[in-house]
Amino acid sequence: MTYKKSLAVPFIIWILAGTIIPIGAIAYYGLTDRNENFTLENVLAIGDSVHLQALWLSVLLALISTVICFLIAYPLAIIMRNSNLGKRGFMIFLFILPMWMNFLLRTMAWQVLLEKNGVINGVLETIGLPALEIINTPAAVVLGMVYDFLPFMILPIYNVMSKIDDSVIEAAYDLGASTSKVITKIYLPLSIPGIVSGINMVFIPSLTTFVISNMLGGGKINLIGNIIEQEFTVSSNWNLGSGLSLVMMLFIIVSMIFLERFDKTGEDSFI
């Protein structure tokens, strides 16, 4: 005797109306023109130099932020793993707390810090140093991405690290391995599932963002997310916006498949 399947009916209806139909809607708008005739124009529009440039910049900035996040998070995860339980809890708390603050407020905070007359320049001026001018540059956007998504890299890596058996590491040291050897031969291979989900959770939001580039790029940095958002809110060209979204979805799927191949034990990844 098992549970009644009918308990899941509201959920199935919701999936149909909230996930399947909407994705169908994007595909429909993306593959038709204003007169509802089939066309591939909206998808192929990614080849326009403006769109291609935006896509390229998005991929580039997302890659840079993902690498920086990884470089910051990895040593941190090892340190956390090797500290005692009480400290671990406190450190997780410290790294989670900013994540629970509103995403827009966190990004706004960087705008306040980096602004021409902002906090950092105010401090630099009082101690007589030249002003920092990175607001409205790609560097500011990368900074914002790293800040907003860093916890998403720390947590999954730490999660996998904390499950590595102490005796494996002790054994390596006992057999004469150096610390760098332990990191490359033990920690790294055993933490790949965490790294993979960390990369996914930083790369995809960075690739698709329009908020960070808008707030810290001052409207001068156009990522593919900005282009799509503008098609919907400013130009009202839903067909083109949907077509470009289809391309973006393709990118997401490809990056996931690519990462999945590295992750044979994907079962205990973060999501």
Binding site: P22, I204, F210, S242, M248
Partner: peptide, 14 residues
Amino acid sequence: LNADIVTGIALLLT
């Protein structure tokens, strides 16, 4: 797994 912007647009269109 989907990007928020795609989910948002998809719901808007629906």
